[in-house]
Simulated scan of single mutants.
Amino acid sequence: MRVLIIEDDRVLGPALRDFMQAQGHEAQLITQGDQLLLQCEQQRFDLLVLDLNLPQLSGLEALRQLRAAGHTVPVLILTARDALEDRVAGLDAGADDYVTKPFELAELAARVRALGRRHHAQLQHILEAGPLRLDTQNKELLFEGQRLNVSVREFSLLELLMQRAGKVVTKQQIIQSLSDRSTDFSDNAVEVYVYRLRKRLEHTGVLIQTVRGFGYALEVPQR
């Protein structure tokens, strides 16, 4: 897993990074809360290990900003704050687990593995393309954390394009994929739904390109 540790203690931070690497994870360390959102915008992580007592911006506020921006990466809070109200505040802000210091490394490793398994299971039905996140299980489309309203056919069309992002999807493939929804689905219907979906996505930066003579390809903006 790719793990980001947010810890300003000069001894504990590097020790946690080394421990995660010894456990087989790819681990990075930052020391300030105001660096968290930028790091998650620039890179994909599978888990965050977050201290609450951070300089510049508290871990709690950094977590709130992260969730408000639509990032769903699992977060394990690792902190000396052991009061009930602190644990409740952390979980309400969007944390997935809460461990207090001092802690046993074996327990920390087990909790990291558990969050990793849960996250992997969730990702089985999640498709992402740039700022778009499509949940095939809950039939939900999000743009930067905000829900976009699309029709059933538009959702199915986008799902097909996102599954093959950057590759050409032919009209025939679209018809075959969606034909069970209507017996009269045709070339013209494909063009209509591509047009409608383009209108839905025009403010997201994600484009549906026409590849003349072949079909369509989803183009995702580079960050």
Results as ranks from 00 to 15, higher is better:
L66E: 03
I30S: 08
G166P: 09
A27G: 05
Q122F: 03
P221V: 08
L60Q: 10
F45T: 05
R10T: 13
F155S: 01
R223C: 03
K139E: 08
V73Q: 11
G70E: 06
G94Y: 12
S182G: 05
E61N: 00
Q146E: 11
E191V: 13
H119S: 14
L29E: 06
E154W: 02
P102R: 06
Q209Y: 01
E61Q: 15
D92W: 06
Q28V: 07
L76E: 15
N149W: 07
L218N: 02
L50W: 08
Q124T: 03
Q23S: 11
T183K: 09
A93W: 10
V49M: 12
A93L: 14
R181Y: 13
F185D: 09
A106G: 06
F143T: 03
E140C: 05
R181S: 11
I77E: 10
S186Y: 04
P102N: 13
V192I: 10
S186H: 05
E154L: 04
A80C: 05
V192K: 14
V220G: 11
Q146I: 03
D86P: 07
R212K: 13
L197K: 09
T204Q: 01
R181H: 05
D82G: 13
L132A: 01
L29M: 08
D97G: 14
K171C: 14
L78G: 15
R113P: 11
E128C: 09
S151P: 10
A189W: 07
A95T: 14
N53I: 04
G166S: 05
V11G: 05
T204W: 09
L127K: 09
D184A: 02
V88R: 12
E219I: 07
L197F: 04
V211W: 03
Q32E: 13
E41N: 02
F185Y: 15
K199R: 15
L207D: 11
D82I: 02
P131T: 04
I30W: 03
K167V: 03
F143L: 07
S179H: 02
Q163H: 00
A114L: 10
Q137T: 05
E140Y: 00
S182D: 13
L12W: 07
R223W: 04
L84V: 09
A165Y: 01
Y195T: 07
L158P: 01
E61D: 14
A80Q: 11
N138M: 00
T210G: 02
E140T: 08
T210W: 09
A95F: 09
M162Q: 01
I30N: 03
A69H: 11
S156R: 12
R10Y: 00
E159M: 10
G213W: 04
T183C: 00
L141F: 01
L38S: 04
Y195F: 08
F155H: 10
V99M: 15
I5C: 11
L54K: 08
V190I: 13
Q43T: 09
A109Q: 15
Q176I: 00
S151A: 13
L52E: 05
L91E: 15
I175F: 10
P221I: 05
G13H: 01
D135L: 06
L29W: 09
P131M: 12
E7S: 07
R10Q: 12
S156P: 03
L38W: 01
L218I: 06
H120I: 10
R164Y: 03
G205M: 01
L157V: 04
Y98V: 01
L57K: 12
D92I: 05
Q209H: 13
L54W: 03
M162C: 02
A83M: 12
T31H: 06
L54Y: 07
H71K: 05
A15C: 04
L48P: 05
